[in-house]
Design a protein around this nucleic acid. Sequence first.
DNA 1: TTGAAAGCGCTAACAG
DNA 2: CTGTTAGCGCTTTCAA
Lengths: 346, 346
Amino acid sequence: MPREHDRPTLTSIARRLGVSTATVSLALNGQPRVAAATRARVQALAERLHYTPDFLARGLVTRRTGVIGLVIADLGNSYFARLARKVEDAVRARGFDLILASTDEDPAAEDRVLRMMLQRRVDGVVLTSTASSTHRLRRLGLPLVLLGRVPAGVRADAVAVDNEAGGYLATRHLLERGHRRIAIVTGPASLSDVRGRFDGYAAALRERGIAVDKRLVVAGRFTEESGRAAMHRLVRHRPSAAFVCHNQMLIGALRAARELGLRVPRDLALVGFDEVEWADLVDPPMTMVEQPTQALAAKAVNLLVDRIHGARGRAARLLVEPVFRVRASSGADEHGPRADAQGEES
Amino acid sequence: MPREHDRPTLTSIARRLGVSTATVSLALNGQPRVAAATRARVQALAERLHYTPDFLARGLVTRRTGVIGLVIADLGNSYFARLARKVEDAVRARGFDLILASTDEDPAAEDRVLRMMLQRRVDGVVLTSTASSTHRLRRLGLPLVLLGRVPAGVRADAVAVDNEAGGYLATRHLLERGHRRIAIVTGPASLSDVRGRFDGYAAALRERGIAVDKRLVVAGRFTEESGRAAMHRLVRHRPSAAFVCHNQMLIGALRAARELGLRVPRDLALVGFDEVEWADLVDPPMTMVEQPTQALAAKAVNLLVDRIHGARGRAARLLVEPVFRVRASSGADEHGPRADAQGEES
DNA sequence: TTGAAAGCGCTAACAG
DNA sequence: CTGTTAGCGCTTTCAA
């Protein structure tokens, strides 16, 4: 009897009550134009039958699903996981549900996933894009906000950390500690965040009249192993410090430093990017440029939901300031030793 | 009547081609009973118009959405993030998409989220439940698989790591290293995983004729801070080792050990639970009981998809063996120094 | 091989 | 206030 496909529907409730489906719909959706008595009867029965509306059917007619699609590069990366969590909170706070898909930093997967979201008629998409080109995005025909990365030439709303500021802060900090041979472990130059971080690095060097030494620049592939390999390559050129632009690559860099017998920060000062839960658990604690994921997520979702609600106007481009956390891995500065307690600087 | 966003539909394609919607549907879905020529025309036009089927409409008639709901306790926790990632892979490999919701270990949120998934007509649910009771689950009327935790008295399929084995391994390992006063930082006893780990701990002690000393048992709340507090409480009773059952709490425990000036493993040997990316980055590297998330996820999703495809039969209860990784934090054993990972001695 | 028609469960005019 | 009537875009008999 209580079989699965016997779920109560608006129609079945209406029939049992001898009213119309319209009335039931109005009553259940709290529209004022139903008699109190009718509403009560409807609600009572709906309750008793454990009626729940079918969002598919509703969405089919309202053309809105109440779902936001989140495309994340890699949930396995703690930064993205944290970001996804914050996006979910923000999305839910705004009354939407979430459909999630990973791309593994693969543009083809990104295309597939976006198509899927289109088919599922999501109301909007939050995209941590991994693509450099954007031909697909232009004709998406869906509210879209780019989070973290901004492929060139897209006119969608975008929110990101100020990567250039982050790269600049990290590098200037190392310069102030007396380093002149500062290496950078970066990523694919086609990605806006990678480029921003590098530009900040270059700008800080330039400010001190130091030219970028290409031998001190290595691009990894966002994996621990590529971070490790990068470090092994770099060490031949005797950097005294390194700025590692990605959390997974930082893990690899740390491993490499150990394998090579480099003491951090004495032989090699290190600054990493992204918040990691182990930053102050390792020895020495890691100086990091952190992205305020909460703010990023909230801003992105707000922008998106406003668009969904019909906001017009040109694409916004929001930049969030990174948080620079100085710990011991970047060493003591020129003016004397510095405690490895956490501090802040900006 | 020019609509706002005139996406092509089956109907519009049919009209333009002068055929019926049925034909278009059949052609696009690769049914053999359409003439090759007709199919070609249909496909050509569909392609040109960038037609994509509306999954809402399709779902409304087929009664299947192709969506699996994933209810995760906390994406911010790296274990759950990793698990979610693996579940997503498995789900997609089986041809489904994913709708995601977190509960923050809050049973009320779990209820809300499950109701939402019902309304969205997901085909099935993967649930990392946080509830001890299960009244809601019984009448869910939806294929359901429990992952990681198994609330008592549910008859759904379930997959979990063998928590008792994990607790036993960790504790026996410490016993073999000569420890007799072994503390445990556990969690809410109502949760099956927590209970399992504790039971394993108790069993190992019993085997050696050691009674559980209640002063060495502290239940935390799955937060870093509660792990820290637990450690501070425990230290008064002079344990020589501790088994910390949860990754976040392990972080807190580690902090506490430092605050208290305890050297690991000399003053306090430690074993943690769950894989953490920093296990061998900290000093000393952490001995951990790891859950094979990949296997857990794959088994859970396979079970679920089989049910969705109509598999009958009584609920399965799958147990996956934990992986015990010995590193330096648990110290050297009775028979001499042991160099398992980084060759640490104290 | 194709078309007509009947819905899936719901909302939204527009009447009554 | 409430009912009638159309669909939303799709799949699926059942005929032709």
